[in-house]
């Protein structure tokens, strides 16, 4: 008992000494933090890492606080080397064109990498001739005419998506897709891929968002799953998205989606672009442009996929899941 008391007293003395040191350190850190915050200038939208005699790249991001932009930019910065890189964050920037113009006036850039529509739109406004690489731009087709613009599109290749559906659910043979005229070319590619993959695709074109409810019953008849693509007419509102998922639930049919966002709505399988891979694809484009070797393809599909699987839906709809495909999954919803 005495020994324990002695040990306790010694332990207490030691702790008291540490506590004195600790409290002084905490106080010093606190004062230090206040001083640092007083002398640190406010964050600038433009960050420069310039050295001489090496190629220069300007990276313009629509909003660095948005994960889908940040992941691509981080992977780009991590992979790109032997290059001077200047970054511009257009978050809360109400004069993006002027900001980019200022940067271009003060330095020469071999290539610009624009992430997001705000970034690419602003670059296009002042530098339509400049060798430019883009990613995370949904309406990239409107920049297709620019001779020196190259980029990575937002959605995985339709054939890759369909192949993955088949890989996960070998019993799913008949798919339905709802689309509008914007996606006619994509659906044409998908029909070809389905023939190659031994799948049947029931493609239903709709003209206006109002038509959706009319065609939804057809969509779930004689089909094993609904393939939900990013279509501006089909998915024109949250209301329409909810309507689709409610009908799918009633019909006990899985929805395979192309955007992670729909995992929350109850998609059974979601295949979206892996954004760090998109950033690395941009590096390959930029390196080719620096070497003045024009890339063979002006716009590429994302090369990496991110897959989310909802096991609750798999069970609820009694789907036959190929367990070998689980080595491709990033997220499991249970």
């Amino acid at each position: 008992m005495k020994l324990m008391q002695h040990m306790y007293t010694r332990h207490k003395e030691k702790l008291s000494r540490w506590a004195k040191i600790g409290s002084k350190a905490i106080l010093a850190s606190f004062i230090g933090l206040i001083l640092i915050s007083c002398v640190t200038p406010p964050e600038k939208p433009v960050q420069t890492f310039i050295a001489s005699d090496v190629p220069s790249v300007l990276v313009v991001t629509s909003n660095q606080s948005v994960e889908r932009y940040r992941l691509a930019e981080d992977a780009f910065m991590k992979t790109m080397h032997d290059t001077n890189i200047q970054t511009i964050n257009l978050q809360n920037n109400h004069a993006p064109v002027e900001t980019i113009q200022d940067a271009m006036n003060s330095n020469h850039y071999d290539v610009i990498y624009g992430i997001g529509a705000k970034a690419l739109g602003s670059i296009d406004h002042i530098a339509p001739e400049q060798p430019t690489v883009f990613s995370s731009v949904l309406n990239w087709r409107q920049f297709q005419q620019q001779p020196n613009y190259y980029g990575v599109s937002s959605d995985i290749a339709p054939a890759s998506q369909l192949a993955m559906f088949k890989h996960f659910f070998p019993d799913v043979k008949r798919l339905t897709v709802l689309f509008s005229k914007t996606n006619r070319a994509l659906v044409k590619q998908a029909l070809k891929a389905c023939r190659e993959l031994g799948l049947t695709l029931n493609a239903i074109e709709i003209d206006t968002p109002r038509d959706l409810s009319i065609y939804l019953d057809d969509a779930f008849n004689n089909t094993d799953a609904l393939w939900l693509i990013s279509d501006p007419v089909v998915l024109d509102s949250t209301k329409n998205a909810r309507l689709i998922f409610n009908r799918a639930e009633q019909a006990k049919r899985p929805v395979f989606a192309t955007n992670e966002f729909f995992s929350e709505y109850g998609s059974t399988l979601t295949i979206s672009a892996d954004l760090p891979t998109v950033g690395r694809q941009a590096v390959i484009y930029v390196n080719k442009l620096i070497k003045q070797q024009p890339p063979a393809m002006k716009v590429q599909f994302p090369a990496g996929s991110k897959i989310s699987l909802n096991l609750k839906k798999v069970e609820s709809y009694q789907l036959h899941l190929n367990y070998d495909a689980l080595d491709s999954v990033n997220d499991l919803i249970e």
Binding site: A157, D274, T277, S305
Partner: peptide, 22 residues
């Protein structure tokens, strides 16, 4: 070494060849 495009999984690498990304 910059010619390596690191992708998440083998099937991505194979399909990347099929669709011209690599």
């Amino acid at each position: 070494a910059d010619q390596l495009l690191i992708v998440p999984k083998d099937v991505d690498a194979l399909l990347a060849v099929g669709f011209g990304m690599a």
